[in-house]
Amino acid sequence: MTNEQDEVFVLSVCIDFKSPYAFVAHELIWQLEVSSGYTVNWMPLTLNIGSFLGRAEKRNDGKVVDSNRTPKQWSVVKAAYREARCYAENQGRVLRGPLKIWDSSIAGIALIWAQNHADTRGHLKDFMTDVFDRFWQRECDIEDIDILNIALSNAGIQSEGFIDYAQGAGRESHDILQDQLLTQGVFGVPSFIIEDEVFFGREHLDTVIWRLNGSQGPMPFVRYPWQAV
């Protein structure tokens, strides 16, 4: 897998800023990058949540104002948020459920831009952490191109040219990438790609490391890392 600068990456990771699973995984993936020494190629997979969980919109007080979700879909969504909130709190993060299904494609384009323009991995991490944390505190409008432009700048990443990119070549790259990822079998986030193999979910982190290190010994079981408190 390569990025726009044709760097070759061993490990690619797909995320979507509006996914609670990606939110609770991103710090762990940064830790993996540091501990394993493998540079992660971050890629946006912009989920169409309405296509597999139905759509819903709430008011600020939490009352549902528009939804086509079935009781089963609601039970799956509620269980996912309950679980993600628990793990977010364990990491000291705030996770407030979004009031609507966001179009996160511009944030995804900003991720591509950030990866290609960040001078250091630290700047890229700062950008991602800032957008993730503020979005899940309901303090970042990820559909607003100007807000993402400022977020890039605040993280120390060149933002000049981003708006044009997001409305032109960046949008095109993003859309082509969505098609490629679906073809490759990536359907959710976070997903890890090593050559042609896909691992969906942060519970596979141990297996991903095991695979990167040559698949020596028995394949690990899946597990969600839990910090002792």
Binding site: S51, F52, G54, T70, L182, G185, F187, G188
Partner: peptide, 27 residues
């Protein structure tokens, strides 16, 4: 299978659902 309970949409929406479903089965 929560996707099976999503109401039918436009041809593009249905095509996306089908491709995502295939990706999920492959995974």
């Amino acid at each position: 299978n929560t996707a099976a309970e999503v109401p039918k949409g436009t041809p593009d929406f249905e095509a996306y659902k089908a491709r995502r479903g295939l990706a999920r089965r492959r995974y």
